[in-house]
Design a protein around this nucleic acid. Structure first.
Length: 273
DNA sequence: CCTTGAACCTGCGGGC
DNA sequence: TGCCCGCAGGTTCAAG
């Protein structure tokens, strides 16, 4: 479900509910996520107060007093929902935290591809999950030169390179495809065939498109929702993703779907070369 | 080292 | 109505 714009939207919607709140109790109802939830997770969180919420790529980091950080990755179907205590538990509510204002924070994830970890600040710095990530797309160190360097000697297709979180951290299949449409490059193009100019165009378009998607609160393609259960609106601005068989928005051609790297890629055969 | 494909899960929509 | 198939916003690991 969630790529960088959706994760950023979730962070923003969490803050009004969570900042300054104390965590009273954490219940792990299903520990079997992508990585098993550690048995000591509740003990590391209970009694602590939430001081800040940030995002790194597709990870959500909740800072607590007393040197603790609560980290989430939403996988494909994960949601963080803030709810009043009266609301009944739903199937797949795997982690439920009770807050000092009577509210709750729930981690809900039918497919269980997400994960949740509680660590100290020192442990956070050494977490392989985060230390393996490349630059966020909004950082200055992600630029045309860096992307061009990553494309050299790469036999991979450019769509797959953009999904590699070590190259740039935060893109997923929707935005990788949308970026490539907007710069006129086919997702199937071999990375090493790109020119310096094309790499620069992709690197410039990436933060631009992501900011635009954040402005629309992300893409609610099927089930993505923020912490208030609100939909995003960027699905109304997609030009190629999941539009195969439909007509291109800028030319008379039909959008095509191909499978590369085991995942669908979408493009317009005449707008993208 | 690099690249590809399968695996991890559940749910939904389409075709029959 | 029900069953089977393919597909899904992500990541990791094994095999070649």
């Amino acid at each position: 479900m969630p790529e960088l714009p959706e994760v950023e939207t979730v962070c923003r919607s969490l803050r009004p509910h969570l900042l300054g709140r104390r965590i009273l109790r954490v219940e792990v109802r299903q520990p079997r996520l992508r990585a098993p939830v550690a048995p000591d997770l509740p003990a590391r969180l209970e009694g602590r107060t939430i001081t800040a919420i940030h995002r790194r790529a597709k990870y959500i980091l909740i800072d607590l007093d007393g040197d603790a950080v609560w980290l989430f990755h939403l996988g494909m179907s994960g949601k963080l929902i803030c709810a009043g205590k009266g609301k009944e538990r739903r199937k797949h509510d795997h982690i439920v935290a009770a807050l000092d204002d009577g509210g709750e924070l729930r981690y809900h994830d039918p497919r269980r591809f997400g994960l949740s970890v509680a660590v100290s600040r020192a442990e956070l710095k050494t977490l392989p999950l985060l230390s393996r990530l490349g630059p966020d797309p909004m950082e200055r160190r992600f630029n045309g030169a860096a992307l061009y360097a990553a494309t050299r000697a790469s036999a991979r297709r450019i769509r797959d390179l953009l999904l590699d979180q070590q190259v740039v951290a935060g893109l997923g299949n929707i935005y990788a495809n949308e970026i490539l449409f907007r710069v006129g490059i086919r997702p199937t193009a071999r990375a090493r065939r790109l020119t310096r100019r094309q790499a620069a165009a992709i690197a410039a378009m990436t933060p631009k498109l992501l900011r635009d998607a954040i402005r629309w609160c992300g893409t609610s393609f099927s089930d993505y929702r923020d912490a208030d259960d609100q939909r995003g609106e960027f699905q109304n601005h997609l030009r190629v993703y999941d539009r195969h068989g439909e007509s291109c928005r800028v030319c008379p051609n039909t959008i095509k779907r191909v499978v590369i790297g085991n995942r669908s890629a979408f493009y317009c055969p005449s707008c993208q070369k």
